[in-house]
């Protein structure tokens, strides 16, 4: 997938004529983690360890696998096997049970969850749950968890692989986006024309397909400028490594000194802040 920028800042995604096994997820995994150490049984989920600021970090990425026996994951979607496999690669780190809790970095480049009849039958919702469960379990066990979004991150795929992190970093690139649903499907479900949907998504902040909107909404903690999101050079890598290390340090800080409830709302999330406040006030019952 790649993104075409329009002069007005909009962009559309299209499939490029590159080999389908090449992907941003694989490129960044290999750049940060060295040669692929993909599991032999499930080649669509890469996992491996590499040093970052002198500590051993576990990297996990989901990548296209053109010959996968599940046709619906061949473009790099999170399918039934991928969800469970992500969980395994993370749980292996938790199971080491060493004093130094190793960080886990999720490299995110997902056209979404697999859209298939058989996937639904086999309980893809549970596979996604298993992956999300692992990331939260890792956090609760004291492992710093950081996501690096290098391409699209859609919907259930992102809830499984990417959302449950202490920090979500994203490349500042038009091909990087986070969204609940692709434009065509979203237009159909909401009974809009594609043009109407696009107009709305430019007007309403949480509906935007622009990664900057996610930064404004506090979903992405930091955007990282790179010279190339598809073929990173040495200085890109240096910058990304430094940001990942800093995010891991922030995560450790948060693990050691858990944040209390937010005392003031994020600018664009006042309603959810008010909800949490009101519920806390009313939880114990009416004042005597």
């Amino acid at each position: 997938m790649s993104a075409t920028s329009h002069a007005d800042g909009r962009f559309t995604l299209k499939t490029e004529s590159i080999p389908s096994s090449a992907s941003r997820g694989r490129t960044w995994f290999e750049a940060l983690c060295g040669a692929s150490s993909a599991s032999a049984t499930v080649p669509s989920v890469l996992a491996g360890d590499a040093d970052l600021s002198a500590e051993r970090v576990r990297f996990i990425s989901v990548v296209p696998d053109p010959s996968n026996r599940f046709p619906r994951v061949r473009k790099g979607e999170v399918g039934v096997e991928e969800g469970w496999m992500i969980a395994k690669h993370g749980r292996d780190v938790i199971a080491e049970n060493t004093e130094a809790k190793r960080p886990i970095v999720a490299i995110v480049d997902l056209p979404g969850q697999a859209f298939g009849r058989r996937e639904e039958m086999m309980g893809i919702f549970l596979s996604c749950a298993a992956a999300a469960d692992m990331y939260v379990a890792a956090r609760m066990a004291g492992h710093p968890v950081v996501s690096l979004v290098v391409g699209p991150a859609f919907s259930g795929g992102f809830l499984a692989h990417g959302y449950q992190s202490h920090r979500i970093l994203a490349l500042d690139d038009p091909g990087v986006l986070i969204h609940a649903m692709g434009q065509k499907a979203a237009a159909r479900i909401t009974r809009h024309s594609l043009a109407e949907w696009q107009q709305l998504s430019e007007k309403i902040l949480p509906m935007s397909y622009d990664i900057h909107a996610c930064a404004k909404l506090g979903i992405v903690h930091q955007l990282i400028k790179v010279a190339s999101a598809t073929a990173p050079d040495a200085s890109d890598l240096k910058r990304v490594r430094a940001r990942l290390s800093a995010a891991i340090a922030d995560a450790r800080e948060e693990i050691n000194r858990p944040r209390q409830n937010e005392t003031k709302p994020l600018r664009h999330r006042q309603a959810s802040f008010e909800v949490a406040q009101r519920l806390a006030e009313q939880w114990g019952g009416p004042a005597a």
């Binding site: 999300a132 939260v136 609760m140 449950q164 949480p206 509906m207 909107a213």
Partner: peptide, 25 residues
């Protein structure tokens, strides 16, 4: 996720998952 509030709905659904995982322990 409510598509009219797409990314906030998505993020806060992730918060539901996190909160469930912490509570069910």
């Amino acid at each position: 996720v409510r598509l009219q509030e797409a990314n906030l709905g998505l993020a806060l659904t992730g918060e539901i998952h996190r909160a469930m995982l912490a509570l069910r322990r």
